[in-house]
Nucleic acid binder design. Structure first.
Lengths: 90, 90
DNA sequence: TTTTAATATTCATATACAATAATATTTAAA
DNA sequence: TTTAAATATTATTGTATATGAATATTAAAA
């Protein structure tokens, strides 16, 4: 996979309103699947699937905490910077 | 359309290898459809379609020059900054 | 005004994606 | 060791996307 394809895939992963919103939420701190589910008002399976796509693309990672699985941004500064640029009033 | 949806749509438009490559090429300067076609080795219709998606999402704009249509990045600095962040070694 | 070059659009088809329901897995607590 | 809670996976179905071929449009040149 070329660098261009890697970057495109990363952008594509973020380029879905639910996944982008998940990323926004994770800027505020790590969340378990159930919290993502209830915060975004989506189904459990759907939350899990979107988190999986973010994980595959290196946007999030997770750790187990008891019977919860906590997802967090792998590079929170990077995501913040991207959003700053994307949503900066220019 | 919410800000989140707008941003997601923008990311989605860039999140295709051909369109991302078009954006890269346009950093170097404006190009007409035929140049995009030959540079990326894609069909004329396909180039036109991808450029249309980039235009709808406010990533490029175009001006007619004689019988050519020249496409250019609306916010080249923004695209450069995005790529810098995305592809920076961290 | 016809013709030609450049670009856009339409149509068809194949593939990918998204959401849900149902089920499976995993872990901890009872 | 069962049970329950949390999460993941699978299967299904509908929708969206990507591409190419064919056709239409547009603008300039002949």
């Amino acid at each position: 996979m070329s660098r261009n394809e890697m970057t495109a895939s990363y952008l594509k992963a973020l380029g879905h309103p639910v996944r982008l919103m998940i990323a926004r939420e994770l800027i505020r701190g790590q969340k378990c699947v159930g919290e993502v589910e209830s915060t975004l008002h989506i189904r459990q399976a759907n939350a899990s699937q979107h988190l999986s796509i973010l994980k595959i693309n290196g946007i999030v990672d997770c750790i187990r905490k008891g019977n919860l699985k906590c997802y967090f941004l792998k590079e929170p500064k990077k995501i913040e910077q991207l959003l700053d640029i994307l949503e900066r009033y220019q």
